[in-house]
Design a protein around this nucleic acid. Sequence first.
DNA 1: AGGCAGCGTTGACCTGGATCAAAGCGCCGA
DNA 2: TCGGCGCTTTGATCCAGGTCAACGCTGCCT
Lengths: 252, 252
Amino acid sequence: MTTALDHKAGAPASLAAQVAQADMNPCGACPVRSLSVCSALEAEELRRLAEILTNMKVDTGHTLFSEGDGADMLFNVTSGTMKLYKLLPDGRRQITGFLLPGDFLGLSVNDTYAYSAEAVTSATLCRFPRRRLEALLEEYPKMQRRLFAMASNELAAAQDQMLLLGRKNAKERIASFLLLLSQRAVRRGFKDNPVHVPMSRSDIADYLGLTTETVSRTFTQLKTSNVIALLEGGKVRINDRDGLQDLADGAA
Amino acid sequence: MTTALDHKAGAPASLAAQVAQADMNPCGACPVRSLSVCSALEAEELRRLAEILTNMKVDTGHTLFSEGDGADMLFNVTSGTMKLYKLLPDGRRQITGFLLPGDFLGLSVNDTYAYSAEAVTSATLCRFPRRRLEALLEEYPKMQRRLFAMASNELAAAQDQMLLLGRKNAKERIASFLLLLSQRAVRRGFKDNPVHVPMSRSDIADYLGLTTETVSRTFTQLKTSNVIALLEGGKVRINDRDGLQDLADGAA
DNA sequence: AGGCAGCGTTGACCTGGATCAAAGCGCCGA
DNA sequence: TCGGCGCTTTGATCCAGGTCAACGCTGCCT
């Protein structure tokens, strides 16, 4: 079992220093300001955020929280990859999303999490007490609006995923998945081509509503038809992006 | 083809009269204040909303907007049922949700709708110009917060639906669907038992990621095993709610 | 009244992906 | 260095749900 290593975000003095630079993100090492809940805010707002956050680190496989737990914390991923999932009583699992640096997690409708969150790779996050963040939101409507925009984006992504799960075949699902990862890499400022795929076949399967065997076979098919190449280290090179896009759209 | 019948919401005088009663909802006949974007607001806020809204009516089958259209309007359903869907180029369709009175639609990330909206039954809506509503949101953070809460709810529903589409079998999907309709009826103040199912088999199929034939057969199975009874007028009586719940959870 | 178009149901058959099984292939710890 | 465990791949077989087809019902339109 892995454990979470919590620690308060630096000493107060160092915090103040951080915030003195207006373009510093209080979420520590978060390299993706444009996606973070913390981005596009005023220095004053950042300072207030910094006051209530705690930086933490989780190892691969660590469960951050489980469906049904009391939802008193919100998180922002600052490095690594997390997965969110829901389970059926018999163990069937659906991964509802993979979270990259800048992504936010922990929103809940009532007072319990509606899904579980687990680290795909070792990851760092910053953690906000729900109550205190909500209080800040009241004070700074701009933060509220930013959070709303993020939720809207997630909703749009969820709808794409419903189309995928309800109507696409295995090849189309894998193609869509690879393009999604590629696009997200670009948005995070990395090059889009050898796509880094940090998750296991089993995670991919549970995200796409398939089995590991089908995921594996489909990767092999795409490799055989030279649309992609499987590189070492969990990297996938896209040889024929247009072909992959046509597949993903169901146009092929 | 059906057409939308737009008309300004009453005369200014009548509007003022409406708003004078603080617990009147500016969205005309909307009977479900607790779910509406308009609910739980101050008289002042309601008055401002009433100023910018237009009530409208759409007939069964009418397309309110299509995926890719410029998203300059937001809507709130006041009566009837709407469906949201996405299409693949070859015509495969995924319905991402059914909207009942009080539900909000038209949120978009960039400036175009990410899905199409069509009337399942004839329906009435109130329509807000996006720009003007956004301006109001700036002014009234409480409205913003309310909208955020609604988006969070939709997100949770979308995650449930992903679990359904990715991991449940046909019987479990139909069971989940019936219980969902039943619960929503309760929340809207109707009795939960003979559930009203206003949508066609084809709509149900495209919502659940099945075919009409499978939907029909599964209804028949549930009827045969006396879990439900199919009544006339698109009503379904739930005879064994616990049994249905076990099915929906995949516990049976 | 008749005809016809769309929906729902049912039957027969087919197939994509699940399931079951077994073999490679790191990677880590002793 | 070796052994073993977990992940991935590949093969063989199965089956839930898709596809194709036919028919009944209902409600329009003429």
